[in-house]
Computed example of a mutant assay.
Amino acid sequence: MRLSNNLVGFLNFLTFLCSIPIVVAGVWLSKQGNTECEKFLEKPIIILGIFLMFVSLAGFIGSCFRVSWLLWLYLLIMFLLIVVLFGYTIFAFVVTNKGAGTVLSGKGYKEYKLGDYSHWLQKRVNSTKNWNKIRSCLSDSKVCSSFQDKYLNDTLPLLYTENLSALQAGCCKPSDDCGFAYVSPTVWTKNATVVSTNPDCNAWDNDPKVLCFNCQSCKAGLLDNLKSNWKKTAVVNIVFLIFLVIVYSVGCCAFRNNRRDNYYKQ
């Protein structure tokens, strides 16, 4: 009869312990973070850690010390969390259901077009404010400098056969139809005799901080990478959702035990 209370208390004690390093990591990022990406992550991490502390304490005290109103509050938050997580999982599958890279003949990488992805995602990356932050993160992540170092000794035919990631193919090199002359993986010379209607050709710059970060292909490559990550996250969310439902069910049993104890005391 008391197993449900003890189990909820034990799980929330573990959650409280896990929340401590999350808060510490957020505070560390606020002190040590130098890049735009690190500064962007610090507040959500701290908020998440404090939220987990609050919820786990409510669940632990409510179940182990028979405080019914705290356990009721814990169950309410758990229910809302389940609803939000379920909605997010469905949303992630919907917005990432559309869009994929186009296979190029004789090439080891794909071509990515922004128009192939969902309008909601397109709107997010087409926002100047959003894209400036994303572009800063891409530059700070050294994705193109590592691309340059890894394929520095490749000839152009050999580079065409490499299995490039969506970000490398979309952000670190110009589109193939631009007809640029190859110098190195991130250095290309514009050919005046080749005329292309692709706007990305004019957006390309050999400056390591610019490259094709302003290109539509870069935005599409980012969305393809995001699509892959969101689908993996959605699968993890399903497993976590099942776990939350089980914990919520056990919590309901613990709440019923608390009410029964209070009734007998009265």
Rank of each mutant, 00 (worst) to 15 (best):
Y109P: 04
A92I: 08
S141I: 09
Q266T: 11
W204V: 06
T193K: 11
N132M: 00
Y109G: 03
A100M: 12
D176C: 05
L80P: 07
V143I: 15
V245W: 00
F240T: 13
G101N: 14
T89M: 12
K190T: 13
C172R: 10
E111R: 13
F240L: 15
W204H: 11
W28N: 11
W28R: 13
S249F: 11
C252H: 02
V247H: 03
G87E: 06
G59M: 05
L71K: 03
I90H: 05
F147V: 06
C18F: 06
K43A: 11
G170I: 12
G62N: 05
C64M: 12
M1L: 03
V183F: 01
P44K: 12
R135P: 02
L41C: 13
L114A: 09
A166D: 10
F240M: 14
I134K: 07
I22A: 10
L76K: 03
A58I: 06
S228H: 12
I61A: 09
G115K: 02
G221Q: 08
V27N: 02
L159K: 02
A100E: 15
P174W: 08
P199F: 03
S146K: 13
M78N: 07
L41W: 04
Y263S: 11
I77D: 02
K232N: 11
T233D: 08
Y248A: 01
V24Q: 09
L211K: 08
T102H: 08
A166W: 08
C201E: 02
V103Q: 15
V94M: 11
L121Q: 09
A203L: 15
K113R: 10
W204E: 00
L57N: 06
N130P: 00
L226I: 15
L41N: 13
K231Q: 15
R135V: 08
Q122M: 01
W69S: 12
S68N: 13
Y112N: 05
C37H: 10
F255Q: 07
A192Q: 15
V250E: 03
D140A: 15
D176F: 14
G108I: 09
S56C: 07
F60Q: 06
K113W: 00
R135C: 07
L70Q: 06
G108Q: 05
K232Y: 01
C253D: 12
C212F: 13
G99E: 03
N229I: 14
S4H: 01
V24S: 02
N198Y: 00
S136W: 02
V95A: 03
E42P: 01
S165Q: 10
F65G: 00
F10W: 04
